[in-house]
Simulated assay, not measured.
Amino acid sequence: MRSDQHTPKHITWIAAGTVVALSLLTACSGGTGGTAEPPASGNPGPSSSGTSSSTANGAPKVPAPLPTEKLIANPCSALSDDDAKAVGLAAPGKLNDITPRGCDWQSADPDLKANGITLSPITQNTNGLADTYSMKSSQAYFEETQIAGYPGVFAAAHDSRKTGVCDLVVGVTDQLSVVIVASIVRGKNVENPCAPVAKIGTAMINHLKTES
């Protein structure tokens, strides 16, 4: 990526990257049986009355469902302005025209304005993280992780991490996951974009916990 890339082009590129991620991650939406309820009602009940620690396709269950009504209605509500500033983002975020709708934030550092992230609830996937796990074999990378105690996975069909792009999908309920796509074109994290995106995921989870 050229170091002289301008912000308007960057924002377009971020949106395109998120569209690719959503297209990939929703390709098998509903393919795990379609028995889960859609997340639009907000804060669903407990994920399971049993003791299993995984859902369909081996995806880990969330430890406790988080509120999602505000998140779905306005993805920019995933981070408060103070949360965004704490992880180095300029507030407020801006809603984009991606389907499903997401929110874009840019770096607060004037020298790093070309860096940014897009965050989108994957409302098409009514089985949450299990639908992402159903696509595991088609990913260029698929690395399980935990974000503030919630299950997540770094995954994408094309591995662009060495050029500043990292995709993280986090389960916030067993019926809804959120994709966070980071685009780092300048600065120390160009070759390590998954570190800042994990921090943003942690900030999101901690913020959602305050709404429960």
Rank of each mutant, 00 (worst) to 15 (best):
I11C: 08
L25P: 00
R2I: 10
S137A: 14
S29L: 07
L176M: 09
G31Y: 02
R101Q: 14
P63R: 01
M204E: 12
A140C: 01
P92Y: 04
D167C: 08
T12D: 14
P121C: 06
T99E: 10
T32G: 13
N206H: 00
S77C: 09
E69V: 11
S48F: 02
S29K: 06
N43K: 15
M1S: 10
G187T: 02
T26M: 03
S23D: 10
D167R: 10
P196L: 00
D111S: 15
K199G: 06
G128F: 07
S49P: 01
H10M: 12
T32S: 12
D167L: 03
L22C: 00
A195I: 02
S77P: 06
G30N: 07
S53H: 03
T55A: 15
E143T: 11
R2T: 12
V20W: 02
S77I: 03
L119H: 00
P193C: 03
S77H: 07
W13A: 12
G45L: 05
A40R: 14
L25H: 08
I11H: 04
F142H: 06
W105Y: 14
S80W: 06
I72W: 02
K85I: 05
Q106M: 15
H158G: 08
E191F: 08
N206L: 10
G164V: 03
A21R: 01
Y141K: 00
E143I: 10
G34L: 05
Y133L: 01
I184T: 15
A90P: 04
K136D: 11
T145L: 02
I147D: 09
G17V: 01
F142W: 05
V87M: 04
A40C: 11
E143G: 02
P151Y: 03
K94M: 10
I11T: 10
I184E: 08
T68E: 06
L22W: 01
S29F: 07
I147T: 12
D4M: 08
K70Q: 12
D131I: 07
L208R: 13
G50Y: 03
